[in-house]
Design a protein around this nucleic acid. Structure first.
Length: 150
DNA sequence: GCCAACGTTGGC
DNA sequence: GCCAACGTTGGC
């Protein structure tokens, strides 16, 4: 089983939205590296943190699980969507998404608290200039953060 | 609002 | 294929 971090802006779709929906297609990812993580490396049953960015309290806000492996992202075919991609066709989809299921809302664990942990020094989300919306989390990082949430 | 960092675009 | 310009991201 692998661990991941899903970054999202709570003003668009945050942990409370997922708690309400229970499951959602993690669509709209338009970055090749992040797509490749979903398409090539994510498996059903993987776990992840939900991370809130571009908000008052950036940090970890919830725990999720991957409930369906990658499949073509419907929004790439939708002309009305901001994620529409004219170069994508159903026969040759360019973008993929997994389904993410709500596990639980955590107490907010802010970026400063994360930075204060030596064990998390190399965590991708904390690196300078990081912009990837999906990043792998190591088992050690996962355990460290779970410990902080107890 | 600022600024650093990064990905994408497009001219050549 | 190079690289400058541009747009976006995201913490502060």
């Amino acid at each position: 089983m692998n661990y991941w971090l899903f970054k999202t802006e709570p003003s668009t779709y945050g942990v409370d939205d997922l708690a309400r929906d229970k499951v959602t297609a993690w669509s709209g990812v338009r970055n090749y590296q992040a797509r490749n993580f979903m398409r090539d490396a994510m498996r059903k049953g993987d776990r992840g943190f939900l991370y809130h960015s571009s908000c008052d309290e950036p940090g970890i806000a919830g725990i999720v699980k991957v409930s369906r492996a990658a499949y073509p992202d419907e929004s790439q075919f939708d002309r009305k969507s901001r994620y529409y991609d004219p170069a994508a066709t159903p026969d040759a989809p360019r973008w993929f998404n997994v389904d993410v299921t709500f596990v639980k809302k955590t107490r907010p664990l802010g970026i400063a608290a994360l930075r204060s942990q030596k064990a998390l020094a190399k965590m991708q989300i904390l690196q300078r200039g990081n912009r990837l919306s999906i990043t792998p989390v190591t088992h050690a990082e996962w355990k460290c953060i779970l410990g902080l949430l107890v």
